[in-house]
Simulated scan of single mutants.
Amino acid sequence: MSDMTQTAEANAKIMDGPNVPGTDPVKSDKSRSLAQDAFRDLVRRPMFLLSAVLILFILFIAAFPGVFTSVDPLDCDLKNSMKGPSGDAWFGYNFQGCDVYSQTVYGTRNSIVVGVLTTVFSLIIGALVGVLGGFFGKWTDAILSFVTNVFFGLPLLLAAIVILNNFRDEKGMRNAGVMAVVLTLTAVGWMSMARVMRGAVMQVKQADYVAAARSLGASTTRMMFRHVLPNSITPVIVVATISLGVVISAEATLSFLGIGIRPPAISWGVMISEAQQRISQGLHPLLFPSGMLSITVLAFIMLGDAVRDAFDPKLR
């Protein structure tokens, strides 16, 4: 009888796994598997590694431009106007005699700042609207969905042009600063994230752990921000990563049209706008900022695609 009891206890220990206080081995493995499998799959993707390296390098340039050039981007000499690339100026000079390489390096900061801040603000607004609408439903969802659809009906660039056209400097010239461009693009660019967040929240709130938290008396705020939001934010982050590249190109487009950032501020869009006026005299002032813009946008799109493929179970 005692042998049978010992055998049963041993089998129970094997079934239960190691007795670690405060942990459930089965649940622990399952909870880790989603994130761990996605991360392991992600780091094996060449597209992710390449895009991550490019983005880190571009962010480093934006944060520490002085490491890459000691030339003042606003130190211009008309005697060097439109000179081609050389040992003294790797990317040549523009029509004002400014070093194109130095301006490309320093222009990275404003372009990246606009992209990152706009994406972060859009993510916050979109996540909040999506959580409230998806979690509460009924009239709350109806009102927020109506507001989202109204903003969706506004073409992004057209709405941004209308708003930014009202920003003037002390001379009455159109001139929107970096924060004006950020807030404008945020106001017309948060809707996609709100829709994605709403759909994810509507799925997650039906989960058993949310029902268990509700039955245990958890407050609405705790359920939303402790259980629902963390488990529905992944698809929104993927959208935000891809949108960051789109925002950078939108800033360049607005600056090219003379609506966004204006000289003496430097951005890739400003450089492209100035270079296209003298394109018949030389391509190098246009080629290098355009190349940096294209590489940056492509890197963020590649990163977003890699993250989406890694975290979407249907694509793995």
Rank of each mutant, 00 (worst) to 15 (best):
I233G: 08
Q96K: 15
L49R: 12
I301V: 12
C98P: 02
V100E: 01
K138T: 06
G291H: 14
L298T: 04
D3I: 00
L229G: 03
M191Q: 09
R214C: 04
F91P: 02
G217E: 06
D169G: 02
N175C: 09
D41F: 14
L244C: 07
S280M: 11
S145P: 00
A62F: 06
L54A: 10
D141W: 03
T220M: 13
A63D: 09
V239Q: 12
Q281G: 07
T186G: 10
G258W: 02
R195S: 00
A35E: 14
N110W: 09
S145T: 03
A207W: 12
R222A: 10
G260P: 00
L42Q: 04
Q276A: 08
Q276F: 14
M292I: 02
R222F: 12
M82C: 05
F68Y: 05
L42R: 14
L154F: 12
R226M: 09
T5F: 08
T220A: 08
P313R: 13
V201T: 03
V178W: 08
D24I: 01
L293M: 12
A180H: 13
V100Q: 07
N80F: 02
L56N: 12
G115N: 00
A207R: 14
I248T: 02
Q96M: 10
L303W: 10
V26C: 04
S294M: 15
P235N: 07
L286D: 07
L74R: 09
M1Q: 09
T241S: 04
N175I: 00
A176L: 02
Q206H: 13
D77A: 01
P85A: 06
M271K: 05
P85S: 02
W139I: 10
K138N: 08
R308T: 06
S294T: 15
A180S: 15
A10N: 11
I259C: 06
G153F: 04
A310P: 09
S255D: 05
A265C: 06
G115V: 01
T7N: 14
T140Q: 11
Y209E: 00
A176S: 07
K27I: 00
F288K: 04
A35C: 05
P285G: 07
S81G: 00
L154E: 05
Q6G: 13
A211V: 04
A142E: 15
Q206W: 11
G245Q: 02
R198H: 01
D169N: 13
R44F: 08
R308K: 15
V43W: 14
F39L: 13
N11R: 14
A187K: 05
M191V: 01
A275S: 11
S102F: 03
D169Y: 12
L157M: 09
T184W: 07
G199I: 00
D77I: 01
V307T: 06
I143T: 01
P289Y: 04
V270S: 06
W190V: 01
N149K: 09
I55L: 04
V131A: 07
L283D: 14
G107E: 01
I237H: 12
I242R: 15
I266T: 01
